[in-house]
Design a protein around this nucleic acid. Structure first.
Length: 120
DNA sequence: TGCTTGACAGAAG
DNA sequence: CCTTCTGCCAAGC
């Protein structure tokens, strides 16, 4: 059992909680999660936490990509999982953040007819 | 105690 | 689109 600093303990729990909230077919960025967790400058720590997340927790961590929409280098199952839940991809293989980024802003307000026109 | 490492972000060229 | 650079900061050595 590895000792955890108070920071790591608190930060981890917050990140786990947030990742569990990402809707199917949507993705969040490391910086976004860091911001929502209350540590806007800890984007890199988010990556560290997720990398060491036990599979047993069954977190949908495949829904976390970098600010460019790029998936984790080497984790070839991630893009497949995202496609399976209908996340939008761009020709270059990155997630289309314009359409699939988890929007934590609009979710806090009543639907606006203005933005009802689906893309494309 | 200090230097190196990242599943990062963002700007610049 | 890519590369390079700076800023970031806990963890590891």
């Amino acid at each position: 059992m590895k000792e955890q600093t108070p920071f790591a303990e608190e930060f981890k729990e917050r990140i786990y909680h947030l990742v569990r909230m990402i809707p199917r077919g949507k993705v969040a960025t490391y910086g976004q999660l860091a911001f929502l967790a209350g540590f806007p400058r800890h984007a890199r720590m988010v990556g560290r936490v997720l990398k060491e997340t036990p599979r047993s927790l069954r977190l949908p961590c495949h829904r976390v990509v970098n600010a460019s929409g790029r998936c984790v280098p080497g984790w070839h199952d991630q893009p497949e999982r995202l496609r399976r839940e209908h996340a939008a991809f761009r020709p270059d293989g990155n997630v289309d953040l314009k359409r699939s980024l988890w929007n934590t802003y609009d979710e806090c307000r009543t639907a606006t007819p203005e933005t009802e026109n689906n893309g494309i």
